[in-house]
């Protein structure tokens, strides 16, 4: 996975020869298969069949919700949720969109997720850059301080924040989620970006200094362009986390107009308690943005998870 390599080893390219070797190895596998014993090959076929069966079982929940979203509600009522159906309809989507407020919920989720993602990635990158490259005294402690947030369960933040947002009138707006995710996300972003910046050679910054550029200029036009893969990984990860969050909007909002889509799904359940098709359509709509991000940036997403978790 080249992106992981970039994240952990940096752009210096020291390891590129090893990577190439691996690619050759992959290409050569087909040739070697001929030399392998027949037992090994049938063993592999068996493993693949097993994997396929397991895969279908594994994906049943996803397939089920997508199919249900295209079934009409009367049909579900008559034949049950999981019975396959010949008649497919898009009514559920129209209904979720118009009666179920899907449009409002999705818009709110975007209004929270995009700024909060940007804020956390930008702020985390600043901290990561300082502790990895400017290295003031106590950088280790600074890192520990900012990364420690990873081990703070969100539940311990709820009550004081609830009070704070009530006092300053932000309760039941979108601001609490933007503020909390923006701040809480700094921990993960600091960890990932510190690990990345550590792999960037110091010479890059020094060359900038010799050219007479100031620190902000170096960060913006020398370091950040190099960091693009790491930033993409992080942004993908943060987008998914924040979009999928349920706890903060549950606690910090009350009115329908400011609900994000994850809380919206539940309110839809209360509202149309037997309209399973509509609920399924809502679930699909709520999952589409993260699915799209996931498919478009899959490599980054995975690199983000694996590198973010690797302690440096």
């Amino acid at each position: 996975m080249p992106e992981t390599a970039v994240l952990t080893r940096g752009p210096a390219g020291e390891e590129s020869s090893a990577d190439e070797g691996r690619h050759h190895d992959g290409a050569g596998r087909g040739g070697r298969a001929g030399r392998r014993g027949r037992g090994e090959r049938s063993g592999r076929a068996f493993a693949i069949v097993l994997l396929l069966i397991f895969g279908i079982g594994f994906l049943t929940p996803v397939i089920g919700v997508v199919l249900t979203s295209f079934k009409s509600n009367p049909e579900i009522a008559a034949h049950g949720l999981w019975t396959p159906s010949g008649d497919l309809t898009t009514d559920n989507y129209l209904k979720a969109w118009s009666d179920g407020n899907a449009r409002t919920y999705l818009l709110n989720s975007f209004l929270v997720t995009v700024p909060a993602t940007v804020i956390s990635v930008v702020l985390g990158s600043l901290v990561g850059y300082v502790v990895a490259k400017l290295r003031p005294k106590g950088s280790g402690l600074i890192t520990l301080f900012f990364v420690a947030g990873l081990f703070v369960p969100p539940q311990i933040l709820l009550i004081p924040l609830f009070k704070l947002f009530n006092v300053n009138g932000l309760y039941d707006t979108l601001w609490p989620m933007i503020i909390v995710h923006g701040g809480y996300g700094i921990s993960l972003c600091t960890l990932v970006m510190r690990n990345f910046f550590r792999s960037v050679p110091d010479e890059l910054r020094e060359a900038g200094l010799i050219d007479g550029a100031g620190e902000p200029r170096i960060l913006a036009s020398v370091i950040l362009p190099v960091a693009r893969p790491a930033l993409a990984a992080l942004a993908t990860l943060q987008f998914t986390f924040i979009w999928n969050d349920f706890l903060y909007p549950l606690v910090f909002t009350r009115s329908d107009e400011v609900r994000t889509v994850m809380v919206g799904i539940l309110s839809l359940q209360g509202q149309f308690s037997v309209a399973y098709g509509t609920q399924a359509a809502m679930a699909v709509l709520a999952s589409l943005p993260t699915m799209a991000v996931f498919i478009a940036f899959q490599k980054h997403f995975i690199a983000g998870i694996t590198s973010g978790a690797v302690k440096g």
């Binding site: 979009w243 999928n244 349920f246 994850m262 709520a286 993260t290 699915m291 996931f294 997403f301």
Partner: peptide, 10 residues
Amino acid sequence: FLPLALSLVV
């Protein structure tokens, strides 16, 4: 990998 992108609510 698909389940990873799904929210816990869904």
